[in-house]
Amino acid sequence: MIVTIDPYRIELARRLGLLRNQFDLSQRDFQEPLNLGQNVIYRAEKDLSMSVEALLALALYYVQQCDINPDWLFNPDNTDIPQLNTQAVRNRRKVQIFDKMVEEMRVAELVEQA
């Protein structure tokens, strides 16, 4: 099996640029909090070669400081809007509650049939 990271890398770069624009940040705004120069941010957003440490620092900034859901950031199959982590947690809870209700309805139907 061949594993390719290209779709993930390309989409991550696109999403990093999208987030920077959404939060109205300049590429230079990352110099002080992350010690990353404007050229590193440019390279991250253009899917150019950069260190894993710099890429993780940038991604973690959005996850920790802007409360972005890491699943949306790192998963190209997740096409939702850039969901905040708190929204993602609430949505998961709603799905769990719904799944529990469906299971209870199935059990009630089985009891009625017996």
Rank of each mutant, 00 (worst) to 15 (best):
N39H: 05
L56M: 15
E45P: 00
Q87F: 09
F98E: 15
N21R: 15
R9A: 13
V63N: 05
R20E: 03
D77L: 13
N78W: 01
Y8W: 11
P33F: 01
K46L: 04
R90W: 08
V63C: 05
A88N: 07
N69T: 04
L60F: 10
V3D: 01
V52P: 08
R106Q: 12
Y62Q: 04
Q22C: 06
A59G: 11
R20F: 02
A108L: 08
F30E: 01
L25C: 10
I68R: 03
I10K: 15
R90I: 02
L73V: 00
M105C: 12
K94Y: 08
D47P: 05
E45Q: 06
R90E: 14
D24E: 13
E103Y: 06
N75V: 01
P82L: 04
I81D: 15
D99S: 14
Q96E: 11
N21D: 09
T4H: 11
M50C: 15
L55W: 06
R14I: 00
R43H: 10
R92H: 10
R43P: 00
V107K: 15
Q22N: 06
P33G: 02
V111W: 08
N91Y: 10
L110G: 09
E45A: 04
N78G: 03
T86Y: 13
R92L: 12
C66W: 04
S26W: 07
V107E: 10
V102Q: 14
R43F: 02
A13F: 01
I97T: 12
M50D: 07
M50L: 15
N35D: 13
R43S: 11
D99M: 11
Q38D: 04
D71E: 09
Q113S: 11
Q38T: 02
L48A: 13
A57V: 00
D77C: 10
L110D: 09
N69L: 04
V63Y: 09
Q65I: 10
A54M: 04
L18P: 00
L36P: 01
E11H: 09
D29I: 04
A13I: 00
Q65S: 07
N35S: 10
K94W: 07
L25G: 05
L25H: 11
F74C: 03
E45Y: 00
E103T: 03
N85T: 06
Q38S: 07
R9G: 05
N85C: 09
P33N: 02
Q64V: 05
Q65P: 01
V107M: 08
P70V: 00
I10A: 12
Q113R: 12
I68M: 05
D80V: 04
L48N: 12
L36S: 01
L56V: 01
V95G: 10
R9I: 08
N91L: 10
D6N: 12
G17W: 02
N39I: 07
V3K: 12
Y8V: 14
L84S: 14
G17C: 04
S49V: 08
Q64P: 00
